[in-house]
Amino acid sequence: MEHYNMNLTLKVWKQKNTNEKGRFETYHVKDISSEMSFLEMFDVLNEQLIAEGKEPVAFDHDCREGICGMCSMVINGRAHGKWEQTTTCQLHMRAFKDGETIVVEPWRASAFPVIKDLVVDRQSFDRIIQAGGYVSVNTGNAVDANAIPIEKHMADEAFASAACIGCGACVAACPNASAMLFLSAKVSHLAMLPQGSPERKERVMNMVNQMDKEGFGSCTNIGACEAECPKGISIENIARLNREYLGAMFDGGSKNAI
């Protein structure tokens, strides 16, 4: 891949805190290498702002390896940018041309209030996970890996669902701001494994109720979440979640649900 430098115009969302109204601020960055990641380009911008005595742009990031789920930017209308199955930190500047204007916004959803600039509060996800309760995993000496037999393809599917990093791109991309893809991945990966089966009915009920309480929208099977998910979580998980919910709804096993 050919290396090139570019000058860019950035329109970045600036918002002082949750209560104050935000607005777009225009910045110019020069000599950005095509081999930089999108976040490295933001580091350059922030160094430049600090040198100019201005306030840097606040944004979330942690591992910068595409596995932690912290980075969260809507770039030109696309959650994590236009590359498929890529987090913002793994989006590289070769996705852009010299002279381009890039609009950068935070995840926008009522359940994800903006803390500052591009940083949003995603604790609603944590509360959904907490509502799911616990799974019974034995501690102590390492258990033999084959003590509980699990069908190979079920293990693979559960693993594919467990790949969800909880970044919230599904919510950001969904026209209804629904968290259904996230929720379905979490419900699926436990429901498909024997360790998660005993509490599966209460789990699905409580997690759906918590999601509704947090103010996420309802899923209407639009599919934008699947298209934007950096981990390629399929909406088949949502179909599975619905089946789990239906089963729990018609079964006495859900009586312990809150």
Binding site: K11, G22, F24, V74, N76, G77, R78, A79, K82, V103, E105, R108, A173, P175, I222, G223, A224, A227, E228
Partner: peptide, 12 residues
């Protein structure tokens, strides 16, 4: 707050 740029038909 709605997005300034919409993904439109690119994702759905």
């Amino acid at each position: 707050t709605r997005y300034a740029v919409s993904a439109g038909n690119a994702t759905s």
